[in-house]
Design a binder for these strands. Sequence first.
DNA 1: GTAATTGCTCTACTATATGTATAACAAATG
DNA 2: CATTTGTTATACATATAGTAGAGCAATTAC
Lengths: 129, 129
Amino acid sequence: MFIEINSNSDVPIYLQLAHQLMEGMVRGELKAGDSLPSVRAFASDLGMNMHTVNKAYHYLEEKELIQIVAKSGVIIQPNVVSKATEEKKQKLVAQLRPYVTEGLVLNLSEEELVLMVRKLVQNIEEGNE
Amino acid sequence: MFIEINSNSDVPIYLQLAHQLMEGMVRGELKAGDSLPSVRAFASDLGMNMHTVNKAYHYLEEKELIQIVAKSGVIIQPNVVSKATEEKKQKLVAQLRPYVTEGLVLNLSEEELVLMVRKLVQNIEEGNE
DNA sequence: GTAATTGCTCTACTATATGTATAACAAATG
DNA sequence: CATTTGTTATACATATAGTAGAGCAATTAC
C-alpha cells in the first residue's frame, strides 16, 4: 500500500490520505479485518503530523469504512465494502453534480462523461496513477 | 433563471451561485452575449454580499465561461459552451476520482455509477431539483 | 508487574478560506 | 453632470487546515 502525498495540491493532506486508503479498499489491498498503522507510526512514515493522520482516520470512520477501537490501538474495517444506502447515494449524486455540470459546460457529451467514469473505475481498480 | 441558495449547505455560497449559473449556461438560459446583473444588483436580489457575487463571477471568469469587461459593467459569456482542453479534462477527471472511489467503496457497480451520471446529465439539462 | 504503545484530549499557534461590511477610485453610461 | 460599473482596500468574525507538544487512561508486550 503505497501512499503518495502531494503537498502542492489544493486537496488537504488528510483527504489525500483518506482517498488513497479508500482506493486501497476498493482494490482489496485493505481487506475487512486488516489493521492500519497507529496514528503516530503512520504520521512518522508519511512525514506528517499525528493529528493529520487522526483526521483522516476519523473521516473514514464517519463514512463507516473503518472502526476505531478506543484505546486498543487496533483499527479494523468491518463492513468494507458496505452497502450503499439511498441516502449515501443521494449525497454522492449531489457531490457529483457540479463536476458533471462543468463537463457539460465544457461541451462534453453524455457519452464522453460516461467514458470518463468508466476509465476512472478501471484506473482506480488497477491502481493506476 | 432562478437562483436558490442553501445557507445551511457546506458548499460556499459563491460556489453555489457559480454552479447554478453554469447550469443555466448548459440549459441555454444564459446564452453567449447575454449580460449578467451587476454585482451590487445581484447581491441585493439574492440577499448576499457584493463581494460574494464578485467572487462567483471571478470563479466563472477563471474557467473562461464569462468575460468581465473592466469598468463597463457588462458581463458577457463569449465562448460558452467552449471546447474542452485536454488539460481541463484531466483536471475534471482528477476531481471526479475521489467521488468515483467513494461509489466503488460503497459497493456500487460501474454500471450504477454510469447510470448515476446519465441521470445527472438529464436533471441538469432539464433543470430539475 | 512494569514499560511501551495505543487512541484520545487539551491547548496553542499559524495560515488560509469564507462571508460580511464600508469606503473610495476610475471609467463607462445615461 | 450624475449614476452605475467593476475594482480595490481595509476591517472584522468565523471556520478549516496543519503543525506542535503535553498528558491521560487503557491495552499490549515483555
